Amino acid sequence: MSVDTFTEPTPATGPSTAKWIISTAAALIVWGLVYSLLIPFSDWVVALSGVDPTSHLGEAIRFFAYDTPKVLMLLALVVFGMGVVRSFFSAEKTRTLLAGRREGVGNVLAASLGIVTPFCSCSAVPLFIGFVSAGVPLGVTFSFLISAPMVNEVALGLLFGLLGWKVALTYLAFGLAVAIVSGWIIGRLHLEHWLQDWVRNVRSGAADLPAEHLSVVDRIKAGTDAVREIVGKVWPWIIAGIAVGAFIHGYVPSDLLASIMGRDAWWSVPAAVLVGIPMYSNAAGIIPVVEALIAKGAALGTVLAFMMSVIALSLPEIIILRKVLTARLIAVFIGVVGSGILAVGFLFNALFS
């Protein structure tokens, strides 16, 4: 048998790589062209329906016809870009970066990593066990758990596309502050004894795997796979959220929302947080609702506090985390994060008044 039989396969070269790059560039150009036609498309849908464009139903149809493709397209673009970025990261790399970090610096690093690393409720248990068993301090781990769902790339990308860069950057700053400070506080409370016993007994015996060298084609495929997986899972929630937003946009009086969620109603921020905690949605599904509420005159801080509580303190995530945290530690987690979200809501209302 010749030695060539044992030669490792080499990555695709030349034309194959160029073909992928050209195809990706062409897809991005098509994306831009389609996006630029969304407003006339929504007007055409309203005209096709035969409904009076100035009526409540006409406004609702226009909102739904415009926002549905817009949000889905923005989501696909953001997820593709972050899928490529995430190809440079892995759970093992994240674990290695956080292991041995002291509180303070570790909280900042963990919260920052939460923005660009994949996290959802279904991966909470293995990630949490991996971090704890690797020696990552409990408070640092919580900074990551808070930041990843709340200050993720989907939330920031959609906020930027729908509400502008000022709102997106302010949300980023306050969201990171909640994650960092909440994690630091939980760490200072030294509540490791409130972990489930079996989690505290876990010991990590696996060595870190060497980083895999990925080609340009591999990274593009990672982006397309992310779009297929993430958008494929969340699109029903997006449409449901846009439908709610369309109803609000078309039928809910501005004065009513301003009185309930306006800046003058001080109780609206804690009420929004309490309502948001038991709900289940994600950034893609809740942001169209946020957009419609703000357009109707609701206070920005109140609406974003509602959004944060839905994303960061969702009931399914809490149920899954119950497998690794005791009820007392979950109560502390909800209390600390909820207090941070309250502060963000009031600060947003004060800054954007």
Rank of each mutant, 00 (worst) to 15 (best):
G187W: 00
L214F: 07
G276W: 01
A295V: 01
R86S: 15
S309W: 05
A295G: 13
E92L: 11
V344A: 11
L163N: 14
E8P: 06
L97K: 15
L313I: 06
V227Q: 02
I248N: 06
A168K: 14
P270W: 01
G205F: 13
H249F: 10
G232Q: 02
T7K: 10
K233E: 02
L98T: 14
G58Q: 09
S90A: 07
E8V: 00
S42D: 03
K93S: 14
W31V: 03
I260M: 06
I238T: 06
T94H: 09
V324H: 06
P316V: 00
Y280V: 04
I239Y: 06
K221F: 10
S112Y: 12
W165K: 13
T17K: 04
M279T: 09
V199F: 02
S204M: 09
A211W: 02
I220R: 03
A284I: 03
L127T: 15
S123I: 14
L158V: 03
G81F: 12
K233W: 09
P118R: 01
F346H: 14
G338V: 04
W31K: 09
A284H: 08
V202P: 11
V217F: 07
P236H: 06
G14D: 05
V181P: 15
V116C: 13
L321K: 05
V332Y: 03
V275Q: 04
P270K: 00
A47C: 05
P137K: 07
L77K: 13
L75G: 14
E229I: 14
A331W: 10
P69L: 07
A271R: 03
A26G: 08
A258W: 09
F348K: 10
V51L: 11
E192L: 01
P40W: 01
A12W: 01
L169Y: 15
A148N: 08
W237Q: 07
S90Q: 08
G106E: 01
I230R: 06
T5Y: 02
I286C: 02
G14Q: 04
P316H: 01
R200A: 13
L158I: 04
S49F: 03
P253K: 00
G245M: 00
G276Q: 00
L38Q: 03
A134W: 08
A99W: 11
S90I: 02
L77A: 15
D208Q: 11
D197Y: 10
L38D: 02
A312R: 07
A327G: 11
V227F: 08
G335I: 00
D255K: 08
V269P: 07
H249E: 05
V202K: 07
M308V: 07
K221R: 12
S36R: 10
A299E: 02
G175F: 00
V324N: 11
S16G: 09
K19D: 04
V289M: 03
E59Q: 15
I22L: 09
G262I: 00
A243F: 08
H193Q: 10
F352S: 14
V178N: 02
G345Y: 12
R62D: 13
V337Q: 03
S121Q: 14
V105H: 15
T224M: 12
D218V: 08
I29C: 03
I311D: 09
F348G: 13
G335R: 00
A206N: 10
L351G: 12
I21A: 09
A27P: 05
R228H: 14
I330L: 10
L33Q: 11
G250A: 04
W184H: 06
E291L: 02
